[in-house]
Amino acid sequence: MVRTPLTQAERERGERLGRFLREARGGRSMADVAARAGISAETLRKIETGRAPTPAFFTVAALAGVLGLSMDDLVVRSVLVAA
């Protein structure tokens, strides 16, 4: 199955999400946050760097829970707010 290429807006939204999650992680290690969210550190790295601009909803929800963020925070700060 061939995946439809992402638009520029989708790529930018993924980069904003990644920046916001990285900032929210603060001084906590990537490995610790990823393990608590039930994902690999590599998956978190890809999300934070924008290389995985469209992570699964449940992955984002798990990260939000670990980082003490609401889904509203994520929507407003990373999806709607332009960089």
Rank of each mutant, 00 (worst) to 15 (best):
A37N: 05
A35S: 15
T43K: 12
I39Q: 02
A61R: 11
A52Q: 09
S78M: 04
A56S: 13
S29W: 04
S29A: 14
P5V: 10
I39W: 05
R36N: 11
V2H: 13
R16D: 11
F20V: 15
A83S: 14
D72G: 09
G26K: 11
A61E: 14
A56G: 13
L21T: 07
D72S: 13
F20G: 03
M1F: 12
K46V: 00
F58H: 13
A62P: 12
E12M: 11
A62W: 10
E15K: 12
D73G: 02
A35L: 08
R51D: 14
A34R: 06
R22I: 01
R16F: 10
A41M: 01
G38V: 11
A64I: 01
T43N: 11
L21V: 09
F20Y: 15
L69D: 06
S78N: 03
P53T: 00
R25G: 10
T7R: 10
G14I: 06
L44V: 04
T59W: 12
S29R: 15
G18D: 04
P55D: 00
E48D: 01
T59N: 13
T59Y: 09
A41H: 05
L21R: 08
K46M: 10
R51Y: 10
T7C: 07
T4S: 11
V76I: 07
L69E: 04
T43M: 14
V2F: 12
G18V: 06
L63F: 11
D72Y: 11
G68Y: 10
A35H: 10
M71P: 01
L44D: 01
E10F: 04
E23K: 14
G26N: 11
A31D: 09
L44T: 09
A41T: 05
T49C: 06
V2D: 14
T4A: 11
T49N: 04
A24E: 14
V81P: 00
L80R: 09
R16S: 12
E23Y: 04
A82M: 09
G27K: 11
T4R: 14
A62S: 15
D72F: 10
T43L: 14
G68F: 11
L80Y: 04
G14K: 03
A41V: 01
A56N: 14
T4Y: 02
P55S: 01
